[in-house]
Structures are given as structure tokens and as C-alpha cells.
Write a protein that binds this DNA or RNA. Structure first.
Lengths: 217, 217
DNA sequence: AACTATTTTTAGTCTACCCTAAAAAATAAT
DNA sequence: ATTATTTTTTAGGGTAGACTAAAAATAGTT
């Protein structure tokens, strides 16, 4: 396993390669490499049985590929916790360094780091940390976009793209905060959230796909 | 800079490339690569002006190369402190993981880690940690082999090869411990160290080159 | 000084990972 | 249904970093 292959596997996973076929085009966009390079890498990963390939359609992770993706996610997220909690990184800063560290972390290192951090369940943006054996704890969370007006909820997880996290910082939306969904504008309009203290926050339609909440009762 | 080039620079440094010409042969042994690969890498590093090359003699670090070596040593040793102090690694376990981590550590990460660790001066085997600007603090230490019978000293630094550290662990020699040099056998024979409590330890001749001490008054 | 052994370099190959340009297949539009 | 567009694949090439085998240079020995 090389860092490049690992990044490729992770990209497939993040594009939904666990359940559905991921197109070359999506991988080109995600990894910023040429279409030819994607085909190239596909054939290499295919040879190692990490993915299945439907010509001209795309790729999906095999069990073996999924295991690697989950183990990488575990490493990534444990490092994110370390960077945020121990080194004082903001939640929008952790991603880049964790991305490098995950590829050079022995199992021993990760397990010791995990214990040092008191075996966290979530990373700084609410992502659940997979178990050592590659299984993923089941967490009940709903995309904000699927909520109905009147729902009360707690922010559970948010997408971990740097600019998006910065947007949320600006909007004062953070993990664990409780809101009621006050209003949804029609025609893909914005959503209005309201805290019990009456603080109102307006969130764009697309952002509501990237916020996951835990609906209260 | 790639991890391979960095390892090569580090190997030259560790073989004395700061002051003297290092032969290909030594690099072959240290890096476990073929002689041809050494020549190959030499030409690449030469092009970047990180080394100077005397054909059929060997290479030396330039100022630029030395700076990189020192910065790498800084990263390596700060990680060693972290692994030993925070994650409970033994001093003979830290090397391998630190070797991987040093190549993916941004300056920001290292400086934050350094602060988290309270800006240590030495790593777990007594190696001094270079400064951020690439300068190296001056430490007064003497190879044990140069000591005379009757000298009293404190263990300051030891070579960081895993098997050697294991040997010292077995001999109960650790950093900071004080001894008197009780005896030196002739013909490259062993050295006998003695603590104030009368505990005697016999150290092989070659090992005495890898132990550095701070002679007391 | 000549021969031998060692070390370094050169020449030619290989894999991983990337590229561009062109061909082939799939999809969308008329 | 045919044409146009998009996407994927193939073909050919480049660089980094490794290799083996053979040639060239250095060092050691008689």
C-alpha cells in the first residue's frame, strides 16, 4: 500500500463507493488528476482486488478495499482529535496535517494515540471513528435538509471541507448546539434555525446537505 | 523534497557528511540500496546543490543540505520525545515511527508539538534538538572511550540504534545516571563502570564509542 | 610495476505514478 | 436515427527511485 493508492481508495469511499458505482469523472474532480491516470490507477487497484470495475461505468470498493478505507478513516480521525484537542488546531485546520499523518501511522502508534486521547468516539467535526477491526459504530443522524419545520435537534456532524467549516464558524454553528428548525423557504431557499435563546441563523440550501443532526425525541 | 531524498541527506549527515567526505560504500551499507542507486541519487542531490561530489571519493553536505539535515533531526527528535513521554514508548521503540513521521510534518505541526511538549532540549536518548532556524545548541559531552580511569561522569547521550539501546537497557545504563570509570582493560578490552552505591557494570570496548558522557568537575 | 580486489560509474531495465493526444464507447440532442 | 457531446480507454511518454551486469577507476599486494 502506497500513500497514493490509499488516497485513491479513500476518495472512492468518500464518493459513496461502499454502496454505489463511482465514476472516473467524479474521481478526476476529487483527486485533481487526469482521466487517464484514473483508469491507470483503477487497473492497479483491480489487480489487488481492492475494487470492482464496470468498464465505462465506474468502480466500487470490495470488502478488502472497504476495510482499508475504514482503517484509514480511523487513523485520520484519531489524528484530527489529537491535533484539535492537544495541539490547539481549529476544527478547520486539522484536515491537511491529518491527511499526511494517516499514511505513515503504524497500528501500534494509532492504538497508543487512541488510548492517550481516552478512546474518543467522534472527531472534531463529528465524524464517528471506526473501530480497530474496521467496523463502524452505528450513529443515528439525519441530514438537516430532511428535517421538517418545528423539529428540535442537536448538531451531530458536519462535512469536513475547510471552507465549509469556516462558513459554519462564521455562522456560529458548532457541534452539540441545539436548534429548532423555524422555517424553510420554498424553491431550494434557505433554512432558518433558532436556538431556545431566540438566536436566529440562516443556512443556505446546499449547506443543509452537509450538516447532520440528531433529532431530539 | 521527497522522503527518499530526505533519508539520503540524513544518512550522509549521520555518517559525518558535515565535516568529511562520505563514501558510496558507507551509504550502501546505511541505506541498504545498491551502489548504482547511490550514484543515481548523488547526481540528483548534486543538481539541487544539497551535496558536493568528488568523483570516486564521495559526497559532503553543502550549507543547504546541512540545513535540511538539521531540520529533519529537529522533527525526528521532537517526535521521539512525544512518543516516549506521551505515548509510553520505550526509548528503543521510538526510532521507527519517528522516522516516518518526520517526513510528513509541517513546520506548523512541529512548532505546536514542540510547545505541547514544553520545548524539550533533548530527545529520549540524549540527542540535542536543533533549533527552529537549523542551528544546533552546543553541548559539552565526551565519548566514554576518551575517559580516563577515575573520571566521574553522568550519561549524557547514547547512540540510537534499537539493538544498542536494548543492550543498555539490559546493562541498566540510562541517561543521567552517574558512574566512576573504575577500570579499562588493555588491548581494546571492556570498561568497568561503578556507581557510588558500588554497583559495577562492564561495557564492551566498541560500546564505549556510542556512549557520551558529561564529566563532573 | 603489474596484478588483484574493491569501489564507483555507466548502461540498460523495471515499477509506480503522473501526463497528453487520439480513439472508442456511452450519452444527449436534434 | 443520426449527429454531437461527454466520458472512458488506449497509446505513448516522462520522472523518481530502485535494480543487475558490465566497464572504469582506485587501492592494495606482491
Amino acid at each position: 500500500m502506497t500513500p497514493n493508492k490509499e488516497d485513491f481508495i479513500k476518495a472512492i469511499f468518500e464518493l459513496g463507493g461502499k454502496e454505489k458505482v463511482v465514476t472516473n469523472k467524479d474521481l478526476v474532480r476529487m483527486l485533481s488528476i487526469s482521466a487517464a491516470s484514473v483508469t491507470d490507477m483503477n487497473t492497479r487497484l483491480l489487480k489487488e482486488e481492492l475494487i470492482t470495475h464496470l468498464p465505462y461505468q465506474g468502480v466500487m470498493l470490495t470488502e478488502k478495499g472497504l476495510l482499508i478505507a475504514n482503517q484509514l478513516t480511523r487513523k485520520h480521525r484519531i489524528w484530527e482529535v489529537f491535533l484539535a484537542e492537544k495541539l490547539g488546531y481549529d476544527w478547520n485546520e486539522v484536515h491537511a496535517d491529518a491527511d499526511l499523518l494517516e499514511h505513515v501511522s503504524s497500528d501500534l502508534l494509532i492504538e497508543r494515540l487512541n488510548i492517550f486521547l481516552d478512546e474518543p468516539t467522534f472527531d472534531p467535526h463529528g465524524g464517528v471513528i471506526p473501530n480497530q477491526d474496521g467496523t463502524v459504530p452505528e450513529i443515528h443522524s439525519t441530514p438537516l435538509i430532511e428535517c421538517k419545520v418545528g423539529d428540535r435537534f442537536k448538531i451531530q456532524e458536519v462535512d469536513d471541507q475547510e471552507d465549509f467549516l469556516e462558513y459554519l464558524l462564521y455562522k456560529k454553528v458548532h457541534l452539540g448546539k441545539e436548534y429548532t428548525l423555524a422555517e424553510i423557504e420554498p424553491y431550494d431557499g434557505p433554512l432558518t434555525l433558532e436556538t431556545s435563546a431566540g438566536e436566529k441563523t440562516v443556512i443556505g440550501h446546499k449547506a443543509a446537505f452537509k450538516i447532520f443532526v440528531d433529532i431530539i425525541e
